[in-house]
Design a protein around this nucleic acid. Structure first.
Length: 318
DNA sequence: AATTCTCGCAACCGCTCGTCC
DNA sequence: AGGACGAGCGGTTGCGAGAAT
């Protein structure tokens, strides 16, 4: 946080040389920007700054709107599902915060980035002290590989990597014993826009896409039961393994998180069939196991496919 | 009670990309 | 073609609050 910069002495004397304010936004500035945006909508940000009567640069206004004032923002702590989704998406996308944010309704890239850097990164790091996953630090070490063509993370390229990722994610999932979840009441009370479709139903179900579905060979128990009390309790569940199986593909209802017959598969290797996962089998993009890296994908197409998971984010209630 | 340390997060900075002229 | 401009993104900074000493 930064100190609000005091109005410079000459402010207003010369409209052409008004010094722009920096630092924290005052409630008055927030109100001005909010009112302007709600009545005029988005446009050229430098015009918005000027027309709204703000001594701010357009860039600053844009940031304030996106990160704080936007009515559809969800506020409060990240719920465990969001955390796991962030970890998973980060393992795929790397530090593409805006891409990750686009898949977390109501969350901003800045928020996710801060959360990652301040919380998840550390948590993942501490989990890597275990011998089973020491060879690969954490999802960071996956994602921060040199990029090709500006494309993000390197996909797990072999079964070992996938296992490691699973181990890495496993203990990163929040345990209810170590995290305090914000209460529903608190969040709703804090919600300045109750009329909007913010969902903070802490008991709500998380209908995951088909590719997250648990099967016999898929996710282990203790993971994503759709019941917060169960999530991560085992501390050793496996990563949504960037894979699916034919069985999963056939199981196209929202039965995920409810598999009680699943067995823990930590330590096991996954069969990776990314074609199924992203529906790429008709697009000449095939998973070649050992050698395929993220940079070789059509990134946008990949993300389109991720986005197309049925009812995923729509049913994502935290 | 005072001081120091640590952490979370709002906001800035610098860069890239796309568009327009 | 290339310069100007705006939007957007990711990295970084620095302040405030709470915890620890």
């Amino acid at each position: 946080m930064r100190k609000p910069v005091a109005d410079p002495p000459n402010m207003g004397k010369d409209n052409n040389k008004v010094k722009l304010r920096k630092g924290l936004w005052s409630p008055e500035e927030d109100e001005k920007l909010m009112k302007y945006m709600l009545s005029n909508g988005q446009g050229c940000w430098s015009d918005i700054a000027r027309n709204a009567g703000l001594q701010r640069c357009g860039k600053s206004c844009r940031l304030r709107w996106i990160n704080y004032l936007r009515p559809d923002l969800k506020r409060g702590a990240f719920c465990p599902q969001e955390e796991d989704l962030i970890i998973h998406l980060h393992s795929i996308l790397g530090n593409r915060w805006s891409q990750i944010a686009a898949r977390l309704p109501g969350r901003t890239d800045n928020e996710i980035k801060n959360f990652w850097n301040s919380t998840l990164k550390k948590r993942l790091k501490t989990t890597t002290t275990t011998p089973t996953c020491s060879s690969l630090n954490n999802s960071d070490s996956i994602s921060e590989q040199p990029r090709t063509d500006g494309v993000g993370a390197i996909f797990p390229v072999n079964e070992h990597d996938i296992d490691i990722m699973g181990a890495s994610l496993s203990s990163s999932s929040s345990s209810p014993t170590s995290m305090s979840y914000p209460s529903m009441v608190t969040l709703n009370q804090f919600d300045p826009f109750p009329h909007l479709n913010n969902s903070y139903d802490m008991k709500g179900s998380f209908n995951a896409p088909t590719w997250l579905t648990t099967t016999q060979g898929g996710w282990g128990e203790g993971l994503f039961y759709g019941d917060y009390g169960k999530i991560g309790l085992e501390g050793e569940f496996s990563l949504p393994p960037l894979e699916t199986t034919a069985a999963i593909a056939n199981n196209n209802n929202n039965s995920c998180f409810n598999n009680t017959a699943g067995k823990k598969n930590h330590g096991q290797s996954f069969k990776v069939e990314v074609d199924n996962m992203f529906g790429l089998e008709n697009n000449n993009h095939h998973w070649h196991g050992e050698s395929l890296r993220m940079g070789e994908w059509d990134f946008e197409e990949l993300m389109d496919n991720i986005s197309s998971f049925p009812n995923f984010l729509d049913n994502f209630h935290c």
